[in-house]
């Protein structure tokens, strides 16, 4: 990938740049639900990470291999039993949290296998989503591109919800970045931000 490709990718997926900003050079990274491996490739090129992805879909396995990243075919929902405790510096879950069924045990597993966890997810509390619901419809947007009947998203949440969830799980939030498009949102993030990225660790 060229520097130009990286710039393009970072523009298309602002959460990638936010995640990369937290990851030091040479870190070890496990990317859960890694899709076509773009994030891992981006982190490999820009942060020289030693990384592995976990992915379930057949076409994505081929795409990851083509992208030059390590990918292990498997189902996140059946746990991360193949991975040793504290094996990674970071365990990532990019735009996948909301589509996991066993969200609570998965977050626990992330923090067993990794020193820190990073998740990004669409903020259901974003004002446009709220408007949709007020108007009487489930939101369909760039971040939530599915119809209610074909969505893989079973556990949508707001920033408040996620932070409450972390408190209940004794998970310490270390950092948060909220965005709409590629611009950071500081004011009323739960209302004005469409995407959230969190960095967290086990409670201390």
């Amino acid at each position: 990938m060229s520097a130009h490709d990286h710039a393009e990718l970072a523009a298309a997926r602002p959460d990638f740049a936010a995640i990369a900003a937290w990851i030091p050079q040479g870190a070890s990274v496990l990317d859960l639900g890694c899709g076509d491996g773009s994030l891992l490739r981006y982190l490999k090129d820009t942060r020289s990470v030693r990384g592995y992805g976990v992915e379930i879909s057949d076409p994505n396995i081929v795409a990851c291999i083509r992208n030059g990243v390590n990918v292990i075919q498997g189902d996140l929902e059946s746990g991360l039993s193949g991975f040793e405790s504290n094996a990674f510096d970071f365990v990532l879950l990019s735009q996948t949290l909301q589509a996991t069924r066993h969200t609570e045990p998965l977050v626990q597993e992330m923090l067993r296998v990794g020193r820190e966890g990073i998740v990004s997810f669409p903020n259901f509390g974003y004002w446009k989503n709220r408007m949709n619901v007020l108007r009487g419809n489930m939101p369909v947007s760039e971040e939530l591109p599915y119809q209610w009947y074909d969505t893989p998203n079973v556990h949508l949440c707001t920033l408040h919800d996620f932070e409450g969830f972390c408190r209940d799980l004794d998970v310490t939030v270390l950092d948060r970045r909220v965005m709409t498009g590629s611009s950071e949102v500081k004011l009323l993030p739960n209302l004005l931000g469409s995407t959230a990225v969190y960095r967290f660790q086990r409670g201390i």
């Binding site: 070890s28 057949d58 396995i61 390590n70 292990i72 991975f83 094996a87």
Partner: peptide, 17 residues
């Protein structure tokens, strides 16, 4: 695969249906 992971080898794994 797990043994390779634990040794930090580059490894990809596909389970073909």
């Amino acid at each position: 695969v797990n043994a390779l992971l634990h040794n930090h080898r580059n490894v990809s794994y596909a389970e073909i249906a």
